[in-house]
């Protein structure tokens, strides 16, 4: 019920980051709408609310284009979880996560958790190309644009080990002790927004993992709501472009 959740306050914030064309919007669309469709390049960021049991989880789906980098830290402010997304068929998209996107997460919560997600797994693995657990038939007549002729298997450029290595880089960047954090094999996912492979499992395990963060916030009482808003209020006297 999007209408109902809309009026509620978000309890926790999740941000999806990653280079353009890795399938961030498609992942979210697969999860929320249970479908895969041709999305067009996201402009800025899109804000969604997802009811998770008694909690409202807000999700920022951000644009991967450099053009919108200026807003990255705003989308990440106070985030409890960040989904760093890359394309398994594109090594550069993994490199970009460390080069461009990691620094955007500086404004996230100190106890923010990170997931590393390799999307488009269906392009490199035949087993994933078939219909997935959610029972949706893959439309074979519309192959993904990157393989217009046949459902040829693309070379997998990013291995799971690379993703796990990135995860420990992330923890090091955040100055976190690897042992104190969630284990890498639990936080690195390979998904396919096209077939739905692993998508539910990604979002649901992530939501489960942010629950403690919600409870902590709730136990801290009303002040937490102000935490979300107050940093923005302070800056309202910042002159805009037309002053």
């Amino acid at each position: 019920m999007p209408q109902a959740t809309r009026t509620k306050k978000p309890d926790v914030k999740v941000v999806i980051l990653g280079d353009m064309n890795v399938g961030k919007t498609s992942l979210l669309h697969r999860y929320t709408e249970r479908k895969f469709k041709d999305t067009i390049s996201t402009v800025g960021g899109a804000f969604f609310m997802k009811q998770w049991g008694p909690y409202n989880i807000s999700i920022w789906d951000t644009a991967g284009r450099e053009q919108f980098h200026g807003l990255g830290s705003m989308y990440c402010r106070g985030a409890a979880a960040v989904i760093l997304t890359y394309d398994v068929t594109n090594w550069q998209s993994l490199a970009e996560l460390e080069n461009r996107f990691l620094s955007l997460t500086d404004t996230a919560n100190a106890d923010c958790i990170f997931a590393i997600v390799g999307n488009k797994a269906d392009l490199t693995d035949t087993r994933i190309q078939g219909p997935d657990t959610d029972g949706e038939q893959v439309d074979e007549r519309q192959p993904v644009v990157t393989c217009p002729t046949s459902p040829a298997i693309l070379h997998k450029q990013v291995s799971r080990e690379d993703a796990i290595a990135l995860y420990s880089h992330v923890l090091r960047y955040k100055g976190l002790e690897e042992k104190a954090c969630l284990p890498a094999d639990k936080m690195c996912f390979e998904t396919s927004a096209k077939t739905g492979y692993n998508v539910d499992s990604l979002f649901e395990s992530l939501f489960d993992l942010v629950l403690p963060s919600i409870l902590k916030k709730r136990s801290e009482g009303e002040s937490s709501t102000v935490d979300l808003e107050s940093p923005m209020e302070v800056k309202t006297n910042k002159a805009g472009c037309c002053s």
């Binding site: 919007t25 669309h29 929320t32 709408e33 999305t39 067009i40 996201t42 402009v43 800025g44 960021g45 899109a46 804000f47 969604f48 789906d61 644009a63 919108f68 200026g70 807003l71 705003m74 989308y75 805009g240 472009c241 037309c242």
Partner: peptide, 22 residues
């Protein structure tokens, strides 16, 4: 932008006739 139909969008936009630089 069909993506605009879901959720709430927050995006920078410049209005060139108003001010092309901001």
């Amino acid at each position: 932008s069909s993506a605009f139909q879901a959720g709430e969008i927050w995006t920078p936009i410049c209005l060139p006739s108003f001010n092309p630089d901001c």
